[in-house]
Design a protein around this nucleic acid. Structure first.
Length: 263
DNA sequence: AGGTTATGCCAAT
DNA sequence: TTGGCCTAACCTC
């Protein structure tokens, strides 16, 4: 379930369970042919930026992107490692824990230059520390200059890193903004509002592993049918006004919104 | 058993 | 704009 919250959550787990340890790295499936280059080396740190996960090993940095299918299985073990389930691209093993990676779009070693090349193309990430406090402004000024619909801008990782199709729909509903509105037609307050809403909401997703966006359902594990405001609710009544939630295709992705509440 | 779908994104056209 | 990647879960038959 890969939007940015999932990736940050995984980075935290790697940091806690594996950072500072020497890891065995293998590719049961065989497709990660560079596994041998980091096998037996120390994991220095793990961090996320948007939907990208970076594992810094001593010899090189491993860049992992889950794409739409990718999944992690991370568990502890008692010396006896379980058989890989399905097609495991990469397995990371410490004394106590193992992590199996299946179906990623990217699992590749990069050097510092390659790493900088990737992150230089990423927009601000609401889940990243913002010591100077100017990351929101980077997002806001970019949106306010753009003729592109805000629904597309929120999906563009160079504008805003980590938000995907679920958070896009939910953030726009919460803001009461129609996804077709060009960025430059929004007010500064509206765009800043989206940023700060994401900054407030996404850490909940990291903590729980769920994209919680409904006030009143911001803790626990709400059932799937209670979870979202508009995402995957086409044809169902809007939770606020009761009119039918619509679905459209915007730039190849399904877009859900309420025509009445989002002007 | 086969078809559809997915929280993503890139390259080719 | 379209096709392809790549895996598993969830349908229908």
């Amino acid at each position: 379930m890969p939007e940015g919250h999932t990736v940050h959550r995984t980075a935290g787990i790697f940091q806690k369970k594996f950072a500072g340890s020497t890891l065995r790295v293998s590719s049961p499936q065989g497709r990660f042919t560079d596994a041998s280059l980091i096998d037996g080396s120390k994991l220095l740190s793990a961090h996320a930026w948007g939907k990208q996960l970076f594992l810094k090993f001593e010899p090189a940095i491993l860049r992992i992107h889950l794409g739409i299918y990718g999944k992690w299985r991370i568990e502890s073990h008692e010396g006896e490692l379980p058989e890989p389930k399905g097609q495991v691209r990469a397995r990371f093993t410490s004394d106590k824990d193992f992590a199996d990676l299946r179906g990623p779009t990217a699992c590749e070693l990069v050097d510092t230059e390659g790493y900088l090349g990737v992150v230089s193309k990423l927009g601000p990430d609401p889940l990243r520390p913002d010591p100077k406090g100017d990351e929101g402004e980077r997002f806001v000024s970019r949106v306010l200059k753009s003729p592109t619909p805000i629904g597309q801008l929120l999906m563009n990782q160079s504008v805003l890193a980590g938000v995907g199709n679920v958070y896009r729909a939910e953030l726009l509903f919460r803001a009461g903004i129609n996804p077709h509105t060009p960025g430059k037609q929004l007010t500064r307050e509206q765009v800043a509002g989206i940023w700060f809403d994401a900054v407030a909401l996404m850490p909940l997703g990291v903590r729980t592993g769920l994209m919680l966006t409904r006030d009143g359902f911001l803790k626990g594990r709400p059932k799937l049918e209670d979870r979202y405001l508009v995402y995957k609710r086409e044809g169902l009544p809007c939770r606020v006004c009761g009119s039918s939630v619509v679905i459209e295709i915007m730039a190849t992705r399904k877009l859900y919104y309420c025509v009445k509440c989002q002007k």
